[in-house]
């Protein structure tokens, strides 16, 4: 298992302030990881006391990007720019509040060329927050 923290996460993803939506990731193996985010009131997607649905989607997408980026990083390559290609059956059960810590499990389901399909599920203190599938498209440096 390899762990990345707030100080090293930017080696895995191309996003920078103010839209970094993960603050830690543990790479479990080539196809799964656990990413985290402490929700703070100054988060870009924070509104009326909670993290918005869009923030959960971006968090999920960056969690997926970090899993893919960790592979590149360990091969000595820089973080590649990627986009959300598709969000599918993404259900939102709860909007996390300030001070809560989101824990997200990412599982790589399929990978064809530059397109990766991942399944994500997020919790706060064991409570179900959101889950769904995200397709990430990597376009390069």
């Amino acid at each position: 298992m390899t762990e990345y923290t707030k100080d090293t996460i930017e080696q895995l993803i191309p996003q920078r302030h103010p839209i970094v939506m993960i603050d830690g990731v543990s790479i479990l193996n080539a196809s799964s990881a656990i990413a985290t985010l402490n929700v703070e009131a100054d988060n870009w997607f924070f509104c009326d006391g909670a993290l918005l649905e869009a923030g959960l989607v971006e968090h999920a997408a960056q969690s997926a990007a970090a899993l893919l980026g960790a592979r590149d990083y360990s091969a000595g390559k820089p973080a590649q720019i990627g986009y959300i290609g598709e969000v599918k059956n993404f259900e939102v059960n709860k909007l996390p509040e300030s001070g809560e810590r989101i824990v997200t499990r990412i599982q790589l389901l399929a990978e064809v060329d530059a397109v990766s399909l991942v399944e994500v599920r997020s919790e706060v203190n064991g409570e179900y927050v959101c889950a769904g599938q995200i397709k990430v498209v990597i376009v390069g440096e």
Binding site: Q15, H17, P18, L52, V57, A61, I84
Partner: peptide, 22 residues
């Protein structure tokens, strides 16, 4: 947001468009 998405290479974040629609 374009300062970080991405530095020197602005792309509208898909998640921002989701929030815009909401």
């Amino acid at each position: 947001v374009y300062e970080g998405h991405f530095p020197g290479h602005p792309v509208a974040p898909g998640a921002c468009s989701i929030e815009m629609i909401r």
